[in-house]
Structures are given as C-alpha cells and as structure tokens.
Design a protein around this nucleic acid. Structure first.
Lengths: 255, 255
DNA sequence: ACCTGAACACCGTTCAAGT
DNA sequence: ACCTGAACACCGTTCAAGT
C-alpha cells in the first residue's frame, strides 16, 4: 500500500510532491531504485526514464543514484534482471508437473505473463548486452535459466538435449513475445496528424494486396498463434529427443 | 567510389575533414542523408548516431537535416525502411522458383542476409513503432511485404493462408535474427574490468548447471538452427495448407 | 531555397563540498 | 556515509537571420 499512488502525473514534467506527505522515499537502496524504475517505465515508457526524473521520483537528486548504480545502462540491465527474477519467483517454486511437455507449457506461459505485464520493459531483454555474453540466446536472469535447466534435468533431459531445448525455447519466446508486445511498448511517435505523407511511401494505394488483406493482418490472433506455435515447438523437441533417445536417458512419459 | 573513405575516425569525436578535399557532400537530400545514416550506424552503432554528428559527416550543420527529415525518430524509421528496401531489390526481382517452399527459403535467406550485414540496424526493425500500425508483425517495408504477398498469391495461396504464412514467417524471422544479430549489434558496455561483481548475482558459482553447460550454450550454432527451424516452419505451413485445402485453391507442387 | 548561429530546455556524469 | 550544487560536455529542436 501507498505504493501505487505516485504513478501518474509525470509526463507533464511536474517536479514531484505526490499528495501531501514528503516525497522522500526512505532508505534509498539498489533494489528500491530498480523497483521504482520498473514502475516508472511501466507507466511512462522507457524513453521517459531519466536519471534526473527517477531521482525526483524518489525524492532525491539524480546524482544520489550513482551511489547504488554505476550508470544509466546498468540501471536498465538491473531493471531487466528484476522482472526476470520476478518470473523466477512466479514459476520456479511450482512443484513439477507430470510431464516435461507440461513443464515447458508452464514456463512459456510464465514468460508470456511477464512480457505482457511489462510491455515497456520486455523489449529490453533483447536489446541489452548479455550479462553472460556466452549465454545465447540470453534470457537475462541467470537464476531463472539455471532453474530451467535443473527442471529439464529433472525430467531426464541429457545435457545436449537441454541445450537444444533452451535455445529453441528462448528463441521461440523472444520472437513471439517481442512482436506481441512491441506495439504496446511503443512510444507514440505520431501524436498529431501533421506531416502525413511526408513519406509518400506510406501511402497504401500502390499496394493492392496490403489493402485487401489489411483487415486480416491487423486483427490480433496472438493467443491462438502462441499456443499453436508452442505446441509445434514442443513436438519439435519431442522429435529431437526421440532422434537421439538410443543413447540418451530421456524417456518421454507421454505418448 | 569515393563512398567508402569517410567511415573511420568518428568515435574520436573528430570534427570531419576526411582527407584533403572539402568535406561537403554535394546535393543534400533525404536519401543521401539516410544512406549516410546507414553507413554511420553500421560503422559506429546506433547509439552513436546523433543529428549533429550525422550533419558533420555530411559536411553540414545538424539543423540543415531538418529540411529533409522531421526529426531523429523519423530518421531512424527511414533507415530501417531503407535497408528493407535494399532487401526488396535483392530478393524480389528474382524470377519465381518452382515451389512455394523454395520461395520461402529464398525470402528467409534474403532477410537473414540483410540482418547479418546490418547487425547494428536490424534490431530497430523490432523496436520502432510500425509505419503501418495494423501490420502485425511489422517487417517495415510495405513494398517488400506487398511483394511477398504477391508471391504467395502466385503459388496459389488463399488470402487466409497468406496471412497465416506472413505472420508465422515474420515472427520466425524476427525471433531468430534478433537473437543471432543482437550480440554483434551491442554497444560495448563493459570496456574496462572495473566494477566486476558490482552485481554479485553475475557470479556463476551458484549455478552449477550453467557452469556445466556453458561450453555448449556459448557455441554458435545459428546456421544449423536457422535452417532446421526454417524447415520446420515450412512444414508447419504445409500442414496448415492441407488442413484447409478442401476449400482453398492451394495445391502444393511438391510431395 | 537552403543553410547557419545562437539559443532553449534538456541529458548523463564528475567531483568537490556540505551535513 | 550519504546526499547536494555546480559544472562539463553533450543532446534534439526552434527560429530568426544570413546568403
């Protein structure tokens, strides 16, 4: 409580002073700063996040933040890590489901939930330099990736199959979720109606197919697409597992 | 010619004056600016692109650019469009290959080539607001998307199947290519060795699985993964085509 | 018509100084 | 130990002024 009150009225450039009490957040600390940054980006977009504004939001001068965070870039890295750790807390404590297929379903939907809850933050997952540069693709929270791999091990995945699975899984998730989330996570660049046809190429009249298919292309089908593609992905992994099951220790517990 | 001489020596903040001639590029124009921006981002990263620096690179004050481009955001949009149009020129004039499966292969590899040739630019494809907001997912060049759809039509795709295919195809490409390209497209944020273990969480010692699988996770397998996943994608589309082939006009010309 | 100079309102970051 | 004030070297963008 008293946590959701300072969200609004930032775009206008107001200095702070939320309601009546002092704007000063008590103990400044790394995690407090990161949490405030998450809240701020969720509310205002990542373009709006500024050291000076974040400081003001915390009742402090921007320079005070440098005691806890080396700079803006690392702050953003920390933000990404924070929401991925949130994912960890949400999905990992779940006791294992019967099959690895269901396990992947749970994990995938967990990541999707994070992405849709933080559409302004999730794109950073793909655009920040990796914390562990060798972890490709990067899902950012080493804690989470470790837990994911432990989970696969629990279902009898060999190391080789685990690596294959992690890669296919994370590629799939980033591809789908970045696209699903990116229109929401967009800063509005076209607030006014001026300079339409500045780029004459944006005129649709030369593109008959686009015109004809616009209604279908514009309609949201993310839920179905995500579920279908996820099932296909799991089938794909299943096939790969069978293809090397002669030597490996994985027995799929599900026909 | 005389086109590749001014690439270097920008990071240092040098003012310009490449070799001996006047730094002034002749006729300033939108496309000249965009091309220079592409070259600059390829060489220096998108973070380094500044209106002032781009102006200097063109032998002109930053403010002169505003005659041709409404602002920095739209400049970046233009850059993305330019490389996607490059893709158009590269793939579309190709006379159609025998099967739609091969057609998708050609298109996919075309996009991949663009992505790997412009690793500093490609991530913008996913992070810019769509030129046509209804085009989801956005591959940015309306010209290219139109041509892609015309191609599908040529192979007998129904409109419904074309939409399904465009979506699956672009999601697949963005997911794979963003991940493949993103480590290259990264600004180096860790130039010095200081503040290691500022984030103690980056210490690997608590993550036995990550330690054990590091050699396999860090090794590049993008080529194989891309080809495998692309084949699976095409199979997936094939199945979808058959599933509705009773009513549709698509006959796959390949077993 | 096209470019420039000067100015405005911001940035991130540094560092000596305050408490 | 923790925060601030002032300063530095930048930004994008505006607008009147030059040619």
């Amino acid at each position: 409580m008293a946590e959701d009150t300072t969200v609004a009225a930032v775009r206008t450039g107001s200095r702070a002073a939320p309601d009546g009490r002092t704007p000063a957040r008590r103990t400044l600390a790394r995690v407090v700063i990161l949490r405030e940054a998450v809240r701020f980006i969720d509310a205002n977009g990542r373009e709006q996040l500024t050291m000076r504004r974040l400081g003001a939001e915390l009742g402090v001068e921007a320079m005070a933040l440098y005691r806890y965070v080396p700079g803006r870039e690392q702050l953003l890295d920390g933000v990404v890590e924070l929401i991925m750790d949130e994912l960890y807390d949400r999905t990992v404590p779940i006791s294992y489901v019967p099959t690895w297929q269901e396990y992947l379903q749970v994990m995938a939907h967990g990541v999707r939930t994070i992405a849709t809850e933080h559409p302004n933050i999730f794109p950073l997952v793909a655009s920040r330099p990796p914390a562990a540069p060798w972890l490709r693709p990067p899902l950012r929270s080493l804690r989470w990736v470790e837990a994911f791999l432990v989970g696969l091990d629990h279902y009898g995945f060999t190391h080789e199959l685990s690596v294959l699975t992690y890669r296919a899984f994370s590629t799939f998730l980033l591809g789908h979720l970045l696209l699903e989330v990116s229109p929401e996570g967009m800063e509005r660049t076209m607030p006014v109606e001026e300079d339409v046809e500045f780029f004459e190429s944006n005129d649709l009249s030369n593109y008959p197919f686009l015109i004809e298919l616009e209604p279908q292309l514009s309609q949201d089908a993310y839920d179905n697409e995500f579920e279908d593609a996820l099932e296909d992905l799991i089938n794909r992994i299943e096939l790969a597992a069978h293809r090397r099951s002669g030597a490996s220790g994985l027995e799929p517990s599900h026909p």
